[in-house]
Design a protein around this nucleic acid. Structure first.
Length: 113
DNA sequence: ACCGAGGTATCGG
DNA sequence: CCGATACCTCGGT
């Protein structure tokens, strides 16, 4: 890997927010982005992709705002994605055709806003 | 300067 | 009305 240094403050925020996602619940890149004060979901994905805390940070609980899974382990498709679907399904997340079945499964971090 | 695991908008069926 | 495709913008490295 090209990055063996410590995570930046931004990555820390992303990992923290992602790690706060309860089981059976999912969050979105944009959601976390606004939670840490970011306006770009791509930046979140980048941080998650680097994710040095793979098992610590449930990046598989982070999906797109469309309800799509987005990507996993740097892959937007493939067996890695299949693994993500499997994990979410076993955690209690209703997925249909590899996508979020119920929008209520999203983590209501800011259900008010 | 370049890359990225998204988002939004538009067009077609 | 729903689905698929294309383009854009923001942020980080």
């Amino acid at each position: 890997m090209q990055s063996d240094r410590e995570p930046t403050a931004f990555e820390r925020q992303v990992y923290a927010a992602t790690s706060q996602i309860p089981k059976g619940r999912v969050s979105t890149y944009a959601w976390i982005g606004r939670a840490i004060g970011c306006g770009s979901a791509r930046a979140i994905g980048q941080a998650l992709r680097r994710n040095p805390y793979a098992p610590t940070v449930p990046c598989h609980r982070v999906i797109r705002s469309d309800g799509t899974l987005g990507g996993f382990n740097g892959q937007t498709e493939g067996e890695e994605l299949e693994r993500k679907v499997r994990l979410l399904t076993e955690e209690g997340v209703r997925l249909v055709a590899g996508r979020l079945a119920d929008p209520q499964q999203r983590w209501p971090l800011a259900s008010d806003a």
